[in-house]
Simulated assay, not measured.
Amino acid sequence: MSSLALPTTRLRTRNPLPGFGLSLGLGMAWLGVVVVLPLAALAVRAAGLGPQGWLRALRDERVQEALKLSFGASLTAAVIASVVGALVAWVLVRYRFPGRRLLDALVDLPFALPTAVAGIALTAIYAPNGWVGKLLAAHDIKVAYAVPGIVLALVFIGLPFTVRTLQPVLETLGREPEEAAASLGASRFTTFRRVIVPELLPAWLTGFSLAFARSLGEYGSVIFIAGNLPYKTEIAPLLITIRLEEYDYNGAVAIAALLLVASFVCLLVINLIPLLFEKKAKRNG
């Protein structure tokens, strides 16, 4: 009796998905070759610079201005993309109107469009002789070849991250919590502040972090509209390329490593956000 039950027990303990070990091994191997190995090489090279090498590379005034511009423009663009993205996601989820599917498809356009094409298109529109640039130039407003153009390009490539992060949360949330709050006499502002925002906040912060990390390393869509003036409109990714062309490998490695650390911190925060809100919910519960 027991000898007959033993094979059955063994069958029940088998993994229902065969090939897990092989799949995991191949996946980790490709991840190591494509992602981990290049990043590890950069980290080793950056660690080899030593304190003096880092200080020499980052004390350069041109490097500091480029870093200030990249971080400042990325932060501004991420904030704008978060606000506009929330509005677009709300419209796509809560309303039905002609052209809704087209608008939904256009949100993903920056994912599919080559960034250089996006930069050329934005420059053609907002340059002083462009369609919109002519109107703005009449009021002494300069977008292309200035900081506003950089922010505009970064908003363009960061907007899909915020929309696609918030959209499924809004679809899951539904209208029931709002209707319940309204039935209890809550105003629209109170409902938004006390009901909608707490539910959207984790996804909102995630979308913001993704947009910021993506903007920080953006190159193609920015260099055409920025003008690339040293100390004024020169971004850090472009300066990395310039340092390589000047055979200043240590300077390029220092800037690249700094951007890598900033992007990694953003991704780490993204993964910690759900855990923090879960702990907070448990304490409140």
Rank of each mutant, 00 (worst) to 15 (best):
G207W: 04
T190P: 00
S2M: 11
S3T: 08
D108M: 01
A121I: 11
L201W: 12
R188S: 15
P18Q: 09
A43I: 13
L238Q: 13
L75Y: 10
K280V: 11
G220V: 11
A47P: 04
L210Y: 11
G149K: 08
G50L: 05
T206L: 01
T165P: 03
A73S: 15
E278F: 02
R188A: 15
G19T: 09
A211I: 11
V261A: 14
A112E: 04
L22H: 06
V197P: 01
L31V: 06
A137E: 13
V253Q: 01
A254N: 08
D248P: 01
F111D: 03
E245Y: 04
R193Q: 15
G27N: 02
E278L: 13
V143I: 15
T162F: 06
R62L: 15
V91K: 02
R45K: 13
W54R: 07
A77S: 15
L22W: 14
K232L: 11
F71K: 02
K232V: 14
A40P: 00
L210H: 07
V93M: 07
P51E: 07
R56I: 01
K232R: 14
K134C: 03
V132I: 15
L238D: 02
R14Y: 06
V33R: 05
G251Y: 02
A181P: 08
L87I: 15
N129A: 14
P51C: 00
L135F: 13
S263A: 15
A203M: 08
V253G: 01
L92G: 09
S187G: 15
M1W: 12
